[in-house]
Design a protein around this nucleic acid. Structure first.
Ligand SMILES: [Mn+2]
Ligand SMILES: [Mn+2]
Ligand SMILES: [Mn+2]
Ligand SMILES: [Mn+2]
Lengths: 220, 220
DNA sequence: AAAAAAATTTAGACTACCCTAAAAATAGAT
DNA sequence: ATCTATTTTTAGGGTAGTCTAAATTTTTTT
């Protein structure tokens, strides 16, 4: 049987919250992320467990089963491919595409996804630097550094963001920080951990700790 | 407030069934088209009437209001634009796109539709020859002939289909009948009204009355 | 014009998803 | 180890959309 939009959203969120290690996800965390009440989450968990999509023992949190993981990754694949489409083909800004992809990710057709993937040239990453799972469901998270882990004098490549909020992405746009740009830390203020950063070797700007904490980068 | 998928589907179907003249649509016709029971239709009609999307008097059938018409046409615009995308950009066959567009037509973003329209070069017709409403909601149905209205010796252009069923479209593919091809009636059999037709001046084939009745054409 | 047939609506019920309030279980503090 | 605070589940209920069966209205036939 088919999964509903709601079920797919739950699975995707459980995947995100359980992280690389596949930790147990709590009811409250899910209530927070789905903007529903804990009682509603419990109802849904019982249903997902009945369908064999999650491992669920009362009071013990949840993990995805193999089958649940498969569904979650398929939804993530669709989400990220559609985001690439919206940015690369339709000219949307990276701050505008998340909400739309949140709907498009639920379009069922398998054939559509594969043709879209070809049309886009089999992109490996979405407009926010997040990796796109392949058709077989393999998803490899690159291990990037957070900019706060980089010292003065180091040059790094900007590879992704942790915060996907439009306001954060628009702030990066205004600062001239784009995916793939070279960032060189020229100074870190001891007092508030704000930093001076040179972008692509030229203009320099101040960025707050709040911003640094949300930038994923890579050495060299 | 937002309309649900179900409401949008009802409005689109009411639009289709009430035709050019905006005739009253019956409960049973809607039950048939929506694959639900008449009792379910009645429930929905009450809701659509409460939202001001249809004119509804018990036992008297329904018509769209101005506002309902606007929603219906917006859904049709999205449906047909997505079909163009699927065929022109992703290489789907015209027999494969209807079901997928049936889902895509409910994606809300207005901005998305307008960018998609630009990306596709503002197409006027969908892959089945149906006209695409413009951004302002104007929909002009060209007045085509049905092939059964064409006499022996006449040459016409193939402009569209009445039946959108994959099996019919695949039959046309196998016959070599495509949108825009020239059809010349060389013979009509009096007994069963089957016809001999020359396609693009070359190869000739028999087509049944059933097929003729579903082909929209234009003189010259 | 009445009776029969067909179409439509109402009544009552079900599933999916969500809610609030109360109960139960777990985790944390003393 | 017990008590308290927090988390989670259960209980009971609501809306959207669907169903079947029964009642009502309209249409057709006689
Ligand atoms: Mn979603
Ligand atoms: Mn993304
Ligand atoms: Mn639809
Ligand atoms: Mn079409």
């Amino acid at each position: 049987m088919q999964n509903s939009f709601t079920e797919e959203n739950y699975l995707k969120i459980i995947h995100a919250l359980s992280g690389r290690e596949g930790l147990e996800v709590t009811t409250n965390a899910l209530a927070e992320s789905t903007s529903t009440r804990a009682a509603s989450v419990t109802d849904m968990l019982r249903k997902l467990a009945d369908k064999g999509l999650i491992h669920y023992k009362k009071y013990q949190g949840v993990r995805l089963t193999e089958s649940g993981e498969k569904v979650a990754i398929s939804v993530i694949r669709k989400h990220r491919l559609w985001e690439v489409f919206l940015v690369e083909k339709l000219g949307f800004g990276w701050d505008e595409v998340h909400e739309i992809a949140e709907e498009l990710e639920h379009i069922a057709s398998k054939e559509l996804v594969e043709r879209l993937d070809s049309f886009l040239g089999h992109p490996r990453f979405d407009p926010h630097g997040d990796p796109i799972p392949d058709a077989k469901g393999n998803l490899t998270e690159p291990d990037y550094l957070i900019l706060t882990d980089v010292g003065v004098g180091e040059k790094v490549l900007m590879m992704g963001v942790l915060d996907h909020a439009p306001s954060f992405l628009q702030h990066l746009d205004r600062s001239g920080i784009t995916l793939g740009c070279v960032l060189e830390i020229t100074e870190i203020n001891d007092y508030d951990k704000s930093a001076s950063v040179r972008i692509n070797g030229s203009n320099s700007l101040f960025i707050s700790l709040e911003v640094s904490k949300n930038l994923l980068v890579q050495r060299r």
